[in-house]
Nucleic acid binder design. Structure first.
Lengths: 342, 342
DNA sequence: CAGGGAGATGTTAGCGCTAACAAGCCCGCC
DNA sequence: GGCGGGCTTGTTAGCGCTAACATCTCCCTG
């Protein structure tokens, strides 16, 4: 029916001819205009089905100036969180009748961001969603005056554009408090790259909770989200323990780094959670199967994508809406335990 | 320069007026036609830069019938492999001047696949790339007569469409042989879902290698790519060992499942590689930090994406080209060791 | 029963761009 | 010196669709 050879020059006029109506009437049916007689609509619909007609989006975009497409500017799409958000985004967009154009930023510069948005705009997308972008690229995003609505997802709380975000600070507080309540004197932190707004949020939450509890605030260690970084930190912390430093609890800004840390500690013969408790962030599906299963903070990434689309749709209707941040959730597994006074 | 307020009604005619030439000449400059005087081209280029003109892709698509866009139909984009391939794909497409439209298949049915391709075609993409799709959806793909070139990436060796693929059988053989050479009498296999062509390829390679070596071929166990599945299998194999069965080597069709298995074996007090050797597949970045670091088979996913675009470009030029499969690579780490005769 | 209004349908004019053709120009050649 | 041919530029006609306006028909109201 739909796959009918390589010929596909069907237009409104073909349908119109077949249904015995004018081209405009077909257009009305296709666009669900109210003022079409039921019988006529029926006839047109049948003709459309028989012919396998599909409207030409390019023509429509040309005349309406809108393509019913959303452009996505993303980085780190190969990581669990962003990928999951992409999934939510695509699904929500699709069910709202929008298609998704994707551009990857392979550099965190302001110019790369400008180019990306520009490229998307040239494709006449109706809105642009920026997904977990970083550093300079985010700066470019703020006070960016694009000809279309610009929505930021997971780039921290936006100031100049509508934003959808998970409450990173809360998540970090949850993690830190959990460790403190277990009796640890303080909690060390391995952050993400500091030019990431998410990383900064987690860092803030961690620090705030320590301060609130009156616990000492150790110097945070900057990681780069990779397991390798976590591994390096693990060896470093193990050495610090040997020097007699008080390292019994570590909160890492994502699960990959936590995995690396776990691996390093295991290699150094330090037991988790016996000697050191570890908390990650994200709750990747594998976290439950790390050795030991990782206590971590769950984020609903797909929800983020859905809300992003929701915000886009609101904006397109002229409504300006602020959304509540998504609440993260602490998932306690086996990598955390009571502080052992040795 | 590019961000110049919310107004953006610039057209060829604006540029033409500014440069003092006809609209068509501007079009020629934009499209790199050869027959434009150098001085004129210069003048037009300047006008374009000054005005910040960007061609309207919808209009261009309408008149040329081509949008310089590639459509991607994908599933499992939240997993490492496909996500990585997406990255390669997008980058290659972009540097060839193509944009990427993404559609996710949320169901492996033939009709979902048809809808997805149809949706993409309606957006007048120039070609469709199907990325690691499954079961019925793949069946629909074969002998699918689309109005645009259709390229399959990572869906096994294609019969009706040009295909880019990693030699899964070879990878599985590598893994199996490695274990056999370590002195294991046989190798157990945890496969992916059998409606996945990749899973089937790995299964075939594993079986072939066992047969070649004259080793017994145990019943393969079907998994679903998740760590949870690997965990379940781990418990099952541990029980089998207790019953005296000869389980000393396991090859799993991906790293996530291997992680689950590792976790289960650890929980059962079975040492890896002391008592059981484990090999995964994919070499996700975390595999080097599993406990113990996982021996696995590396696939170059990004290369797959690049080749996909290459094939699209060839096809668009009318050339039909067959590409060699990408070679996988065995990465030996610490989860495999010599068989211990107990 | 005339007038008006609402609903149904048709007609027209582009959206911004490119392909095809047309026109002018300069050059070299016989 | 006239003329053909290549180079450069301009003109025209849509691509397939929708918005705005024009019609026409019917039915209801006073």
């Amino acid at each position: 029916m739909l796959t009918q050879g390589a010929t596909r020059p069907l237009g409104l006029s073909d349908v119109a001819a077949r249904a015995g109506v004018s081209l405009q009437t077909v257009s009305r049916v296709v666009n669900h205009h109210p003022n079409v007689a039921a019988a006529t609509r029926e006839r047109v619909l049948r003709a459309i089905a028989e012919l396998g007609y599909r409207p030409n989006t390019a023509a429509r975009a040309l005349v309406t100036g809108s393509s019913r497409a959303i452009g996505l500017v993303a980085t780190h799409i190969n990581q669990y969180g962003p990928a999951q958000t992409l999934l939510g985004l695509e699904q929500a967009a699709r069910s709202a009748g929008y298609s998704l154009g994707v551009t990857i930023l392979d550099e965190n510069s302001a110019s790369a961001m400008r180019d990306a948005v520009d490229r998307l705009v040239a494709q006449s997308v109706d809105a642009v969603v920026a997904l977990s972008t970083y550093g300079k690229a985010v700066d470019a995003l703020r006070r960016f005056v694009a000809p279309v609505p610009l929505i930021a997802v997971q780039v921290g709380r936006g100031e100049d554009h509508p934003t959808v975000w998970v409450d990173q600070e809360l998540g970090a507080e949850l993690a830190t408090r959990h460790l403190l309540e277990l009796g640890h004197r303080t909690v060390h932190h391995v952050s993400g790259p500091v030019d990431s707004l998410e990383a900064r949020g987690r860092l803030r939450g961690w620090r705030r909770e320590l301060v609130r509890a009156g616990a000492p605030v150790p110097e945070p260690i900057e990681g780069d989200w990779t397991a390798a970084a976590g591994h390096a930190v693990g060896r470093r912390l193990a050495a610090a323990r040997l020097r007699g430093e008080d390292v019994t609890a570590v909160f890492l800004a994502n699960d990959q780094m936590a995995l690396g840390l776990l691996n390093a500690l295991h290699g150094e013969g330090i037991s988790v959670p016996g000697q050191v408790s570890v908390v990650g962030f994200d709750d990747v599906p594998e976290a439950a199967f790390y050795t030991p299963p990782l206590t971590t903070v769950r984020q609903d990434f797909a929800e983020l994508g859905r809300r992003g689309v929701e915000l886009v749709l609101c904006r397109l209707n002229g409504a300006v809406r602020e959304l509540e941040p998504v609440q993260p959730l602490l998932v306690v597994r086996d990598s955390t335990g009571p502080a052992s006074r040795t």
